[in-house]
Structures are given as structure tokens and as C-alpha cells.
Design a protein around this nucleic acid. Structure first.
Lengths: 342, 342
DNA sequence: CTGTTAGCGCCTTCAC
DNA sequence: GTGAAGGCGCTAACAG
């Protein structure tokens, strides 16, 4: 709670010198500097953030926006905690802090962002769960706030993104199943405006085409990204007159629900219907049969995101806005996949 | 990005009047006020947070601290998103904002808090995952920062807390099992310094005592709060010479792992070993057999927490520091519980 | 190497 | 009902 003035008085020197010493500015006698640093530690002095930001015109803080009201965020495991943990650590090495900015259910995400930008509490923003047409991106692109999106979008403009390679995951999943003899493969897609669904769908279609398989619209379903959504998907598959022998999930959150629905309808996951889900996580590992899925290092993803954001704030910010990164994932076989009719 | 000066110039009035109009201060001509408000909306003016905080000495922001490096937070579902979502909404009604402050793996939680307090970016803090002896509480109690803990602690001092009633949940769980004829009931506790473990343990012991059952130390195990921890627990139970007929979990995150370990050892969850876990969540609902557990409304918990924090910042802050609330939970029967040897 | 001073954006007191 | 001015805590530019 001490301010810089009291610290200076305590040391009998001017606040200017104290400030220079604390901020590693040149032109301070080494002995003075060490006295200042020691006194700061003793008195628990930390610069007041408002004063510093006001003067510097920057907060040295990155905001990571999460819509806490979204069912997709309330389901599943704590993807974001792992990503932000690593991202935060990388940012800290460069003197930046990270805060998670939750946008609550009753608030409008676009207005929330507009307020954030104007209030100036962060130097850059990360937004997640991008839509095909995303007003948040349109807003940010018009503003002067540097931002990174986790997920692509068809919203026009030049902005940096990092995205998991949903296309390749889906394509690869189909290929794995086809190699075992599957020919009727269902897929659960999210709501239409969720951008990852576009890519997952295109990968699925590419996989079918590569195998010379026809597209059956009955096998392409849209469900909520939640346990309930997975259950829905399973029920709908069970009700199909000509049941598929395999199913793909573009979100691991739906896996448990799908297993439950199949079992409740007398269908054995893995035996009657092969399943490949999206991202490996600890919960999946103990499901029976263990689901085939895709692995990636979330800490590495967080580090990459930190790098991308820091690039935006560096000297080559303009160039950094053209940074695009497709994040690869590797297939993890599982007992949930078997030849059809086995 | 407009500042108040430009807004005032645009309207040809002084910044003092603009400020008064925007902050609903008395003594502004109604017409002037409406002109100001309209111009603010048009130009997208929002007060700069640093300037305002510096002047007011308050940020109107509440910080919710989460240790993103903790395995317990990386496991399980998004408990905190649901709580903070409701809390945020309640706070917003009273003009407060909420930010989630992640403390990353490589950072020391106590130092992190000390920095937060000194930087003055929030008016109050919420800390979670309390320890039996919690240095964070000791630090905050010494500071002038109002704070609320989600979870109790034996750390001395007068501070407000809200805690789920772990004692009663454990006691009730034992009673349910005893009523069905169980006499050997195992329990998985977290590491010793995790405060909720103390209460869960005391409730477990109270339950045994009420039923006149002996305490078998072999049945009281400590495991990590994660899927792996649950798996560990199951393996250890399977290896016991005199196997229990029931098992209690003080964290739902361990449930899937326990099911997996039992099955891998030829033990049927629900039939061979009855299971009661902690908090109901969507993932559990689709496990087979569905685990008995305890239900509570996380949105209501979030609202209660918002109230507790706002009380701290109100006129009766001193009295509010004595607010303690034990949060009740209700039993949800499940197929994971059956009479022993059934 | 150190002290002094201006001003970041805002709100509030005082004067009118 | 409105304008002018000071100062919240800090850093950077300028004197010395």
C-alpha cells in the first residue's frame, strides 16, 4: 500500500530516482539502486497499476476473453486453464501479465468487448470460440486494440489467428475408419455459426471423397457441444433405419453422453459403433472402451499464443497481424475403434 | 478511444459537466445531461479505467483468483465458470465488474497475491481451494484488501467465508450406505493440507460413530484430486486383503478414474462396490452406473458470493467480515449404490 | 548521477 | 447549472 512518495521519503531521495531505480533505467548509482530495491522489498512496494498505466499509456496486461455463459465452456474439461497457464508463464518472462476476462450470460459479447477496448485495461486481447461471421472480430479490427483469435473466421479483415487443425483431424479420422472397412460414418457437428464446424465438416467430406464413399446427409447431424448433445447424437444414431458403423465427434465434451445413449439403446460403443473423438484428455482415458482421439500439447499451444501476442506488441506489429498458425494434432488409437461387425 | 476532453470539446462544454452528467451527479441541466449521454454513446465513449481508478481510489472490480497450475483445477468440469458467471451477473447489477486472476504454475501464490494487493487493480479478492494453514489468508488479513474465501481454513483471523458442507455430505453418505447394510466403507481424501479434507474426514468419522461402526485406518486413503487419483484409489482398494463394499469420493473429478480402476480389476462399480461421489455434474449423469452424488445450485452459490463481497465493500464492512456460510447440498440417489453382496 | 516538474484521464471541490 | 483547477501515483523529459 505504500506509494512511491513515501518510499522516496523513507530513503531521503527524490521519487524520480526511485522510479528510475525500480524500472532499471540507466543513470542511477549502483549503490542507490540497491538501496532502493531493498527498501522496496522491505516495505512491500509495488507500483500502483493505475498510476503507471495512466502515465505509460499501457498496462502490460493481456486479456483472455471467455464467455462463461456458453454451454460449451461449462462442459468438458478445463482446456483454457491449461492453455492460459502456459501462456501466462511465457508472458511473465517478458514482463506481461494475463487476466481472464469473463463475459457473463446476461451480457452481450460485442458490447462487452467494446467496453473493454475503451476502458483500456489491457494492451491486447485474445478471443476464443470464433464464429463463421464474428461481430467481435469486426469490432476489434476497427479498433486500435491488438488481438489474437483462437480459431479462424470468415469475417473479413487481416488479423492473426491460431487454430487447431479440425480439417485434418476429421479427414484423418475418416481415413482410419475406412482402412478398417467402415463405409457408413456419422459425424456430430456443432451449430452452424461455430467456425470449427466448417473445417471439421470439410475434412470429413474430404475423407469420404478420398475413399470414394458417398455422402449420406442423414449421417451429418448437428448437436450441442455438451454431454447432453452427445447423448442426443447417440439417440439419433440409434433411431436411424440404416445405422452407421462409426461416429465422429468434433468435441470431446460429447463423448460421455454418446457412450451413455448408445448403451441405453443396446448398442456397444467400440464394438457395434466405432468412435473417434476430438481431444485427448484425462477423463477419456478411463472410459471403457478408451476412445480413439487426437493429442496435442496445450502448454505448447499456450506458449505459441503468448509468442503471437507479444509479436503484435513488438516493433513488427503490422507484420505480426498476418500470423496464421494451423495447430497440428496426432492420432491416438483407442479400443473404441474396431472393424465393422466385429 | 475518445477521452473525456474530446467529448467535452465536441459538445462545447467543460469536462467537469460532462463528468457530472455521465456519473449521474446532481446539478446538471436535464437537457445537457441527455446531450452528453447521447454523444457518449455515439462516440463510443467509456471512461478510461486507469484515470478513473487513480482519481477515485477504487476500481469497481472484483478479482477471483484461480491457481491454473493446480491439478485439481485442470481436472473435473468447469465449476468456477458456472460460479463466476452468476457472481459476475450479480456484481454487474451493482456496478461492479469481475475478472479472473490466474496464478500460473511457476508463480508463488502468496507473492502473486501480495503483488495484486499492492498494484491496486481490484477492490476485493476471492480466493479458493483453501488450505488448513493458508499463508494467503494470513497475508490478506494483514493487508487492507477486503477478501472472501471459498472454503474455510484454520488460519487464525477474522475473515468471511463460504464453504460447501463437506462434513454433512460425508456423514450423510455414510448413513445412506449403512442403511443398506454396508459396514466397510472406504474414503478417498485429498492431500492433508487441503482444508475440505478435514471436514470430509470428520463427517465420515461422525457417520461411522453414529452407526456404531469401527474405524479401519486401511480404508482411509489419500489420493490426488484428479482422474489419476481416482484410478489410484481404485487400484488400492482392489489390492486390499479385506475389500470394502463401498467407497466415498470427496471430489467428482476422481469418479471416472475409480470406475476404470475397479473394472480393470474385475470389480463392478455399483454392484461389487457401491460408490457415492461429491458434486453432481453433467458428465456423471452418463456414467454407467450413474453415481449417487450431491446436488447444489452453483448459480445460487455465485449469487451468494457476490452478496458477501458487496457487503464487505458496503458501509457495514466490519460486520460483513464475520459472515460465514455453510452451503448445503442434497443427496441424489444413483445406480452406483446397492446393498452389499447384491 | 540526481532533483524538479509536467502531465497521462478522470472526478470533485470551489468559485461563479 | 456550469467552468476552472487541483491532484490521484507514476514516469519521462529536462535541469543541474
Amino acid at each position: 500500500m505504500t506509494d512511491i512518495r513515501r518510499l522516496a521519503e523513507h530513503l531521503n531521495i527524490s521519487i524520480g530516482t526511485v522510479s528510475r531505480a525500480l524500472n532499471n533505467r540507466p543513470g542511477v548509482h549502483p549503490e542507490t539502486r540497491s538501496r532502493v530495491l531493498q527498501a522496496a522489498t522491505e516495505l512491500g512496494y509495488v507500483a500502483n497499476a493505475s498510476g503507471r498505466s495512466l502515465r505509460r499509456g499501457a498496462t502490460n496486461t493481456i486479456g483472455f476473453v471467455i464467455e462463461t455463459g456458453s454451454p460449451a465452456n461449462q462442459a468438458g474439461d478445463n482446456f483454457f486453464y491449461i492453455v492460459t497457464d502456459a501462456m501466462h508463464e511465457s508472458l511473465a518472462e517478458r514482463g506481461y501479465d494475463l487476466v481472464i476476462l469473463p463475459c457473463h450470460s446476461a451480457d452481450d459479447p460485442v458490447e462487452y468487448l467494446a467496453r473493454l477496448v475503451a476502458r483500456g485495461i489491457v494492451d491486447a486481447l485474445v478471443i476464443t470460440a470464433t464464429r463463421v461471421q464474428d461481430q467481435r472480430i469486426a469490432l476489434l479490427a476497427k479498433s486500435a486494440m491488438p488481438f489474437l483469435t483462437l480459431g479462424r473466421s470468415e469475417t473479413p479483415g487481416e488479423y492473426p489467428w491460431i487454430d487447431l487443425d479440425f480439417h485434418d483431424v476429421a479427414r484423418r479420422s475418416v481415413a482410419e475408419l475406412v482402412a478398417l472397412g467402415h463405409r457408413r460414418i456419422a459425424v456430430a457437428l456443432p451449430e452452424k455459426d461455430v467456425n470449427l464446424g466448417q473445417h471439421y465438416r470439410s475434412g470429413y467430406l474430404a475423407g469420404l471423397q478420398a475413399a470414394g464413399l458417398p455422402v449420406d446427409p442423414d449421417l451429418i447431424l448437428r448437436v450441442a457441444t455438451s454431454e447432453e448433445g452427445g447423448y442426443d447424437f447417440g439417440r439419433q444414431l440409434a433411431a436411424l433405419p440404416h445405422r452407421p458403423t462409426a461416429a465422429l465427434l468434433c468435441s470431446e465434451a460429447t463423448t460421455v453422453g454418446l457412450y451413455g445413449a448408445l448403451r441405453n439403446n443396446g448398442i456397444a460403443p467400440g464394438t457395434d459403433v466405432s468412435i473417434i473423438t476430438f481431444r485427448e484428455n484425462p477423463q477419456l482415458r478411463f472410459l471403457d472402451p478408451a476412445p480413439a482421439c487426437f493429442r496435442t500439447s496445450l502448454p505448447e499451444l499456450g506458449q505459441e499464443m503468448a509468442r503471437a501476442v507479444l509479436d503484435l506488441l513488438g516493433n513488427n506489429g503490422d507484420q505480426a497481424r498476418r500470423n496464421h498458425k494451423l495447430w497440428p494434432m496426432t492420432f491416438v488409437p483407442g479400443a473404441s475403434v474396431a472393424p465393422p461387425g466385429s
